[in-house]
């Protein structure tokens, strides 16, 4: 038996989450088969999935599947799983894989868990997987016992590493039905954010403590030095200082970066809900009693307007030294 991994792609290229899904699948202890759908300009990137643990890569490049339609992709993947005899199907819990997974699960009458953020286990033939629930306030473990099981993995849960070598890419001819295209993506509107929040390795977020939109350049400068994405608390978003696409928390984005830097953010439970699983949390806040310090690994107690520019300059110097 093998595991089927769907490779996220957009604008003709594989996404970072595709690599992560393959890396996660290798932990299931079965042969890993990767599947890409739609246009992929750099075909070498498909072959390179072998380096990250796939032993075969299939590509379905049907003309109609060039634009994203979650129903069509789900139909095609469910058919592929049957054809290739894969009983476990792994997706990234992204805006791509995450919306295909449930649909594929219904088609396969499968066990299903979304947004997993711990490594899987197999016990007595059952797939044991876990995730944070109650917005980060607890963890839960589930067992999946379907003939087929479908899972989606939260971005940044595993770090892909190169262990193998490139493999052959084979074309698979499977197409979707007419009714699978009743909802289709027509266009993509880019935001000005250089790095997408949910995929970012480092995030610098600002809150009400930044006092106004005109001061967010301090956050942006710090983010720039670190190659980080910029986030915000709801207070900053509700005040109209930042777009909602940057909101982290219960009613914003859930992120899990390697490092999360919270500046002028108190650490309300609804904010922690969105970033509590970050690997390293750094707080910059003038109030030593702020709840953010209860979850922070490192921090500076002080005025953001003094600390952030000093930190940005010092990091610039540090980066120059190590490069």
């Amino acid at each position: 038996m093998s595991v089927l991994v769907y490779l996220d792609s957009a604008n003709g290229a594989l996404r970072k989450t595709a690599y992560e899904a393959v890396a996660y699948a290798t932990h299931l202890g079965q042969e890993v088969i990767a599947l890409a759908i739609g246009n992929i300009e750099n075909t070498q990137s498909l072959a390179d999935m072998g380096k990250y643990g796939a032993s075969k890569v299939y590509h379905i490049n049907d003309e109609k599947l060039k634009t994203f339609a979650n129903a069509a992709y789900a139909s095609v993947i469910a058919q592929a799983a049957k054809e290739l005899n894969c009983k476990t199907i792994v997706f990234s819990a992204s805006s791509i894989g995450g919306v295909i997974a449930p649909r594929a699960a219904v088609k396969l009458n499968a066990g299903l868990l979304s947004d997993i953020n711990v490594l899987p286990k197999v016990e007595n033939g059952q797939l044991i997987v876990g995730k944070t629930v109650f917005s980060g306030k607890a963890n839960a473990t589930f067992s999946l016992s379907g003939e087929y099981n479908v899972i989606s993995v939260r971005p940044n849960t595993v770090k892909p590493s190169e262990t193998g070598s490139p493999v052959n890419v084979e074309t698979l001819n499977i197409s979707a039905g007419e009714t699978d295209f009743r909802a289709v993506a027509e266009a993509i509107l880019k935001t000005s954010d250089k790095i997408s929040l949910t995929e970012a390795d480092i995030i610098v977020s600002g809150g009400r403590g930044m006092k106004g939109p005109e001061n967010f350049y301090l956050i942006e400068n710090l983010a720039e030095v670190l190659g980080a994405a910029v986030g915000a608390s709801r207070a900053a978003v509700d005040a109209g200082w930042r777009p909602h696409s940057q909101q982290v928390g219960q009613t914003g984005k859930t992120v899990s970066p390697t490092m999360y830097i919270a500046v002028g953010i108190s650490g309300a439970i609804q904010h922690l809900a969105g970033m509590g699983t970050s690997k390293v949390i750094v707080a910059i806040n003038k109030d030593p009693e702020a709840p953010i310090f209860k979850v922070a690994d490192y921090g500076i107690i002080g005025d953001a307007f003094e600390v952030v520019p000093a930190l940005t300059e010092a990091l610039k110097a540090y980066k120059q030294k190590i490069s």
């Binding site: 044991i128 607890a138 839960a140 979850v295």
Partner: peptide, 20 residues
């Protein structure tokens, strides 16, 4: 075919390192 087996609370974090 999906069953919630158990919940647990996250392990409390060790005290962080804070600089004034």
């Amino acid at each position: 075919p999906t069953l919630l087996v158990t919940h647990e609370l996250p392990k409390p974090k060790g005290a962080g390192k804070f600089f004034k």
